[in-house]
């Protein structure tokens, strides 16, 4: 159980202090909530609140660079953050929570009902990370997820998102405050159509098989989209209080189809 708190003053100090028995704490909406497993498993929490240099939003060559400690509300209020990311940040309905939750924390939490990850996956966002040995790297958000799930220690210092792409997103939940059964995003990138989703209690996915199908046939029908997700065995979807497996697969299919039409400028 966590009994120690380290108030890191710099990203290097925070990353260098990360051990297997330590965990980062950013805005606190995930780690500090009642029932969170993080303080139960870690002995030391490394607070990033006082870390310098993690709170800027700036335009860079590859798009918009957002410091990992920027809050959702800063993203919403920024004049240079693209609208699609503001929409994803506004999926968090509570303004008081938006004042606390950070973009880096939301990525690192890798929640299956993540607010931002489907959008960041769809636009192939880049994540700047710092390892405990002081090595800086710039990896795509999907690679971050894989490395993090493999147990690699990394501190997210910034996120870079493209600023001139067309993105559509949707979040399904009973109320604005509820956990979402499904959050999905699709983007029209230079390399083509991309689709990602966060399915509650199942995980976060980039649906590459569906993307290939749409690239081959941009005019897919709704029936084809539903059939794709109904038969996608690689997706491990379970039945729970949020709905049956069939329901979740159906939602994936109809939403993916709507996104294809929206990105093509057709009526839904």
């Amino acid at each position: 159980m966590a009994t120690q708190l380290l108030m890191a003053k710099s990203p290097a100090e925070a990353a260098g202090s990360k051990t297997a028995s330590a965990a980062f704490i950013a805005g606190g909406t995930e780690v500090n909530r009642l029932g969170s497993e993080v303080p139960a498993q870690a002995e030391t929490l490394i607070s990033l609140k006082k870390c310098s240099g993690l709170g800027q939003i700036e335009k860079v060559e590859k798009g918009i660079k957002i410091g990992s400690m920027c809050t959702f509300q800063q993203i919403v209020e920024s004049e240079i953050v693209p609208d699609y990311l503001k929409e994803a940040a506004l999926f968090m309905a509570s303004r008081t929570k938006r004042n606390m939750a950070t973009i880096g924390g939301n990525i690192a939490a890798l929640r299956s009902d993540s607010y931002l990850l489907p959008t960041l996956f769809a636009v192939c966002a880049r994540v700047e990370v710092l390892t405990p040995d002081g090595k800086q790297d710039d990896i795509c958000v999907n690679s971050y997820k894989e490395a993090s799930e493999a147990g690699k220690d990394m501190l997210i210092t910034a996120v870079i998102v493209p600023d001139n792409v067309k993105v559509v997103s949707k979040r399904y939940s009973n109320t604005a405050q509820s956990h979402a059964v499904l959050t999905m995003s699709a983007a029209a990138l230079e390399k083509g159509f991309t689709l990602a989703g966060a399915i509650k209690n199942c995980g976060i996915y980039r649906f590459k098989g569906f993307e290939e199908m749409v690239r081959e046939n941009p005019d897919i029908s709704e029936e084809e989209a539903i059939a794709f997700f109904k038969g996608a065995d690689s997706l491990k979807i379970s039945e729970d209080m949020f709905g049956s497996e069939a329901y979740k697969r159906y939602l994936l299919g109809v939403t993916a189809y709507d996104f294809c039409r929206k990105l093509a400028g057709k009526e839904v």
Binding site: T29, S47, S94, K97, N99, M100
Partner: peptide, 27 residues
């Protein structure tokens, strides 16, 4: 709720509303 959902613990910190239940006192 102590998970930052209900807003009953809201206080104003430096002019902005925060859920104090998920805000560490040392912050």
């Amino acid at each position: 709720c102590e998970v930052g959902e209900c807003g009953a613990c809201t206080v104003i910190i430096d002019g902005e509303g925060f859920n104090s239940c998920i805000y560490l006192a040392v912050w």
